[in-house]
Every structure is written in structure tokens, then in C-alpha cells.
Nucleic acid binder design. Structure first.
Lengths: 217, 217
DNA sequence: ATATGCCTGTTGCAATTGCAACAATTATGG
DNA sequence: CCATAATTGTTGCAATTGCAACAGGCATAT
């Protein structure tokens, strides 16, 4: 399963085992609802989700919790924080019973020159770069004015990721609303309107777009 | 001046010269309004702003331009895109007469093991990691509901960066509105209200907070 | 089967916001 | 110094949105 992570993709079994050693890998199980990191904690290792799902949120200045990202199988969380060995008021929670492979950055930073270490360094940096680009997309969604526009942008991105007009989102309505930065009931309302207009159908967290919502698809 | 960039901070003059060579550094001047990269272009080098300022925006699905970031002296732009050698619909514009040091990632990715190269790799990765954390803050601002809340969060961050209650922002009102994802006139209105309430004073792009806007300062 | 709790949809209402148009103020260029 | 452009502030109005409260559906546990 970890081969799905770009950090390990394409490694031979021996290389993979060496990589695990280099990164002090430790697999752990976490029950749904378990807090993997609370706001003031540091993060000694970053996580690769093997199974289940994890939410990254941030403690609001007013103490409320604000959803930053959902991390599914094959995806990672906390690399930036772990690499910098800094603290940030991030909260990480298991949103489903999950297995997580915990990895340490230390081995990437020590001076060794072996081929594997160099490859992992490149891959790690590429992961961060890719995350940066994805966050640009997220910002673009949030900066839009209306709920309709946010939904268009969000669903379009889902279509792109899924490679088809039918897909599931890893959120319930409340989570989706938090992710888009809108009120939950207002989101339900807008989704209803869009369904009435024949733009899409949905059931729970599964959506099916009837056509491209945006021009230039 | 480039010493202000974490990529070069603390290097000896000789190391610095070697680093410039390694990164194929080229300094260029750009007039205000010049487009450094339009939406479909690739980005063969990333930029370190020496003087002036640069705006990174993104082509909206509807073709409108959406402000993602402002880059001031000592800061960099385009590292992620350049490192991945991918294309993304980012638009980069000089918002003032500027001098930019253009740097290439190639030298970081080739296998060499010399000390300087390793140091630059570490620093480059750290830069990306830091950017990731800053983008989290930005997302947190944008995800807030009301203009008042966005302003509180934005101004609080400015105070933190400036280290004092008085600071300038690198935007005019229109840019600030775009950065916060709100209407320009609505932003002016809200700022007026806050001034009337005695929370702050401002003139053009200079602000002075009267006190911490948020509890727990 | 029934009860309980969680998630989702609905709706009225008040407040906020975007929009547009215009006034006022400040830069810019000749 | 004047003319012109650019930026900022103001305001009325309509539309969107958040809020709150509630109803129905679905799942789980007993």
C-alpha cells in the first residue's frame, strides 16, 4: 500500500525496507476520534495514512476548530511541521479507524550520501512542492465569493481527481461546509438548488455531475 | 540583500558566489506591470525579489485573475512550480519596478555531494516547508465567515510579522480585498466601522491597531 | 422492534455582503 | 500649476448567507 505514496513509489522491496529503516518507520493503529496531535504539541514524525482517514485542522484564534485538510490512504500529513521541527497550532484527528505509518525526517537531514537517501530527499522535497500547488487550488476555491462558485470550483477539482463525473468526497456535510468555509445549512440549500436545476445528483457523500459545470472543460 | 533570504543566510561570500553559480543565478530588472509569467507558460527558474514587489495570481476557471500571494524583497516565488518542472495556470506580475534574482533548481537535483549543494538542498526544502505553514494561515483567514473576522485574522498576522501594532501592507485596497476574498467597497465599509469603533486607525496602506483585536494576545 | 443518536434537508428571518454608481481624495504627467 | 487618472470612501438596494429551530431519514445498539 505505501507504494501509492510518491515517497516510495517504484522502489524495489529491498530499497523500500532500507527506506523504512532510514525514516525510523513505525506503524500504528488509531481509533476513530483519536487525537494524533493536539494544538500545542510538536510533531516528531509525519504520517502516511495506510488505511482510514485523518483530518488536519487548526485552532482558530477564538478557539474554534477549522478544517484544513483531509488525508486519505496513500497521502501524508505533517511533513512541513516535522521537517522544520517547529510547533504550530495544528490538530490532527483520526476520522475513521486508521493505520498510520509514522516517519521521521531526521534521516533525510543528516549528511549521508548513499543513493537511497538522496532519492528520498528529492522525493520528499517534491512532495512538499506538490502540496504547495494543491494548496493554491484550495486557496482559489476559498477566495471565491458565493457558495455556488465555491461548489463549482470544488466539484470541478473532485472531477479532475476522480477522472470522472461520479465521485465520493471524504466529508459529511458539516465537514464539507467547514472545508469550503460556509454554513452547513446554506450548503445544503445550494446543493438542493443545483440539483433542481439539473446540474448534479447526490446521495450522502457521493456526487454525480450531469455535465461540466464550467466552460472550457 | 539576498542574505535576507533563508536560502543564502549565513553563507560566506565565497560560498554565496558558488551558490549563485550552482543555481545559474541571473539578475533581471522588471518594470511595474511587466508580466513575468503568464498563465500557460512554464517557469524555468524561480525568483528571489531583491527590490520592488511581485504578485502571484491564478487564472480563475472563469478567466478572472485571483490574487494568491504578494512577494516582497528577500522573499521568493515559484519554487514549487520550478522544482517540479510542471505547468500551472499561475500569473506572475511585477507590481512595482523590481529587481529579481532568477534561480534554477537543476543544480539541486543533480547527484553532486559537495557540502554547499547539500546545504542548499536542505534550505530549499525548508523554504517549501515554511511556505506550506504560511499557506495554512492564509487558508485559515479565508475560511472565516465574515469580513470582520477575516480582517481580524489578517491584521493579527500582520502584527505578528511586523512585531508591532503599526505596519504597512503591500496592497492597495483592491489588492487587499482580492487577498481576503471580499468585495472592495465592503472592505472599505468594514474598515470604516472598525475605525469608528476605535479598534484601529489607517491611512492608505498603513495601519495602526489600537490594541489587540483578539483575546489571548 | 424500539429507542437513541447522528446526519441531512427545509425554512423564516435578520444581518451581512456584493454590486453599482458616484463623490472625494490623492497621485501622475505635462 | 493644471489636467487627468487612479485610488479610496460612501451609500442605497437587492441578493446571498448565516443562524436557529425543527423534521425526516438512516444507522446502531439493546
Amino acid at each position: 500500500m505505501p507504494e501509492r505514496c510518491p515517497l516510495f513509489a517504484g522502489l524495489s522491496p529491498e530499497q523500500y525496507q532500507s527506506a523504512l529503516r532510514l525514516l525510523s518507520a513505525q506503524e500504528k493503529s488509531h481509533a476513530r476520534g483519536e487525537i494524533l496531535k493536539s494544538a500545542p504539541d510538536p510533531l516528531p514524525a509525519f504520517g502516511l495514512v495506510l488505511e482510514g482517514g485523518v483530518a488536519v485542522s487548526m485552532e482558530d484564534i477564538d478557539g474554534r476548530e477549522m478544517l484544513l485538510n483531509h488525508v486519505g490512504p496513500g497521502q501524508t500529513f505533517g511533513e512541513a511541521l516535522c521537517y522544520l521541527e517547529e510547533t504550530a497550532p495544528l490538530i490532527i484527528t483520526a476520522v475513521a479507524d486508521s493505520r498510520v505509518l509514522w516517519l521521521r525526517c531526521g534521516g533525510l537531514k543528516t549528511p549521508g550520501n548513499d543513493e537511497l537517501r538522496q532519492a528520498l530527499r528529492l522525493r520528499f522535497t517534491a512532495m512538499l512542492a506538490r502540496r504547495t500547488l494543491r494548496m493554491n487550488d484550495r486557496i482559489q476555491i476559498l477566495a471565491r465569493g458565493s457558495i455556488r462558485e465555491k461548489l463549482n470550483a470544488f466539484l470541478t477539482e473532485c472531477v479532475r481527481d476522480a477522472g470522472g463525473l461520479c465521485f465520493s468526497v471524504p466529508f459529511d456535510r458539516a465537514g464539507m461546509a467547514a472545508y469550503l468555509g460556509v454554513d452547513r445549512s446554506a450548503l445544503s440549500r445550494e446543493l438542493s438548488h443545483m440539483r433542481q436545476e439539473g446540474l448534479l445528483t447526490y446521495h450522502k457523500n457521493t456526487f454525480a455531475l450531469q455535465m461540466q459545470l464550467t466552460k472550457g472543460g
